[in-house]
Amino acid sequence: MDKQIPLDEVIAGLQDKYPEQLAVVEGSLQPAVRVKTEVFLKVMQDLKNEYGLDFLADLTAVDLGDEGFRGITHVMSWRPYRMLRVEVDTPRNQPRIPSLVDLWPAADVQEREAYDMFGIVYDGHPKLTRILLSDNFEGYPLRKDFQVASKR
């Protein structure tokens, strides 16, 4: 596949393909798209296989408060250097995001970390267990409503 496509054309191509489920994040410092959960995996597949953004740079999440959580994935290509942020929102009471482990084994530990810290369930992850905290730890510390022991 043509790996030389500039990033704005990549985004335009994705918008044509997923007009309802994908939006460009306006006013962002770096190129970013926000997708609906149901097409997240498909968009990532396209980015990897069709557009050559085949390196998983980073995977994490942000707590948005009442609006739930936002899964943040940065994919990139090295030559030419392009990087795209893909955001996917998920509700607070039942946070679920499709797992990227099948596309990138690199996602394994990073999804486990996000699960550990935010309690986001990555559907399809082969072994979603706590990675940094102990197995009997209660709560998800990077959630904004988590109270550290000294403040309880």
């Binding site: 740079a57 980073d58 994490t60 942000v62 943040i72 940065h74 690199a106 394994d108 990073q110």
Partner: peptide
Amino acid sequence: GYYVVSDGSNKPYRLHIHGPSFINVG
């Protein structure tokens, strides 16, 4: 990598650190 989210205040709203060692150990 550093992923910094600012809400306009004097503290980061979210700071994520992508440590290469973490990935390499994975």
